[in-house]
Simulated scan of single mutants.
Amino acid sequence: MPSGQRYWTVLDDDLEVVPVADQWLRHLRFGRDRAELTRAYAGGVALYLRWSGSTGRTWTEAARDLGLFMVWLKYTPAPRDGVVPVLRPGPGASPARGERRINRVLVAVRGLLAYAVSMGEAPRSVLGQIYELADSRDLPAEAQGEDGGVFYRLRPLHSLREPQTPVDRATDAELVAMFTAGRNARDRLIVLLVGRVGLRRGQVAGLRRSDVHLLPDSRALGCDYPGADVHVRRRENVNGAWSKSRHDWVAPLDFLVVSAFDLYYEEGHRRLGVGGSDFLLVNLFRAPLGEPMSPEAIGELLERLCARAGLDRRVGAHMGRRAVASNAADAGGAPDEVMAVLGQKSLDSQGPYVLPDPKRVRAAVQRVPSPLGVPGPEGGR
């Protein structure tokens, strides 16, 4: 945009902007402050428009055949070198996309179609092809409201049941192995920011040098937070980094992370000299030198460290975040302390992140006295 702000859009085969999709994505970007969604939504809409065009359907008429679109999504690989593979599903064919990805594409398609109806670009009948009218009686009791009345809602007609994915935390041994596998100070700092501070990869990539305060007293810098800390801020970043938290927050740093910062600053000065980008994490070993790392580069680095460390699974940034929260709870941290460590505003938000050590859970059960007076394993009652 002329203002310097960015968003993702959709082009047709002639490399012309698709007007209704562009309007909807700009509506998402500027109307809802959801810039991080425009990339995923633009990709989903592009797939829908590619399918409708290749099958001779207009994009508004194609809404009635979303079931066929779902089959196409499941078995048609992404195009390579501009060539879309021919769909030839058969017995034993390997899916090109999983249930979660297909559902995300359908969310984007429904959003586009609903927006088009609201703007008069598509007939109102399209809504009946993508939604069914449902009432609150099929919702859990806690979601039905206190007055007991029935309210109506739109429920998507097309969706797939997604397999349950196990939620797990990174173990201390895995994080130590990844840290040890790091070949430079920058990579080791990234492991600590993920597995000891609890930052998401978008937050790690979006850090600026001015966000980091390593002195015991940073009031001269305008920071009243006691001790070393890093300020996590939501801002526009040229490298696509984005903080999921809507509010700014401060994460405390322990002596291990402070030491890692010192080593990284020394390494950066040795490689690049003075000056350069205000972004904290930049390219030190490949071109373009000094340019900020992207969130994708952070994820790829963690994957390489897992392979280099010989781990039997991929440990991502979110697993490191769960490890930070779980370790804080296992060490006796109160719920409000864990909430502050994660940078969250509600105690309910930390539930998916706190996975207690099984030994602590077993010890808690064993501390409960037996109602029958049977002595416990240590002779207690």
Rank of each mutant, 00 (worst) to 15 (best):
361 V>P: 04
130 I>D: 09
71 V>H: 13
222 G>C: 08
41 Y>D: 07
287 A>F: 12
236 E>Q: 14
108 A>N: 03
319 M>H: 09
179 F>K: 05
247 H>W: 08
219 R>M: 02
356 P>Y: 04
269 H>Y: 10
62 A>D: 08
211 D>K: 02
213 H>K: 06
366 Q>N: 11
135 D>N: 15
91 P>G: 11
142 E>F: 10
13 D>R: 13
192 L>G: 02
319 M>I: 03
336 D>V: 10
144 Q>C: 04
372 L>Y: 12
325 A>H: 02
91 P>F: 10
47 L>P: 00
166 P>R: 14
67 G>Q: 12
286 R>T: 15
172 D>N: 03
362 R>K: 15
187 D>S: 09
179 F>T: 07
10 V>R: 02
293 M>P: 01
218 S>F: 04
144 Q>R: 15
81 D>W: 11
151 F>N: 03
12 D>H: 02
155 R>L: 11
179 F>Q: 09
320 G>H: 02
211 D>V: 01
17 V>K: 08
288 P>Q: 12
42 A>L: 01
57 R>W: 15
368 V>K: 04
74 K>G: 12
211 D>R: 03
165 T>V: 14
187 D>M: 05
347 L>S: 05
249 W>A: 05
229 D>Q: 12
140 P>R: 14
20 V>L: 10
193 L>S: 09
145 G>I: 09
24 W>K: 05
290 G>F: 07
159 S>G: 07
294 S>I: 09
237 N>Y: 03
373 G>V: 04
59 W>T: 07
120 G>M: 04
312 D>K: 10
335 P>A: 03
29 R>Q: 14
230 V>D: 04
12 D>A: 02
256 L>S: 12
20 V>C: 09
188 R>Q: 15
109 V>G: 03
105 V>L: 06
332 G>Y: 06
127 L>F: 06
300 E>G: 08
97 R>G: 06
61 E>M: 11
349 S>R: 06
229 D>H: 13
247 H>I: 06
363 A>R: 14
71 V>N: 12
154 L>R: 11
319 M>A: 14
52 S>Y: 02
298 I>P: 03
166 P>F: 11
8 W>I: 00
357 D>Q: 01
138 D>G: 13
115 Y>S: 03
3 S>I: 00
56 G>H: 05
328 A>L: 09
339 M>G: 03
158 H>N: 11
158 H>Y: 15
356 P>N: 04
116 A>D: 02
85 P>R: 10
253 L>F: 07
142 E>D: 14
61 E>N: 09
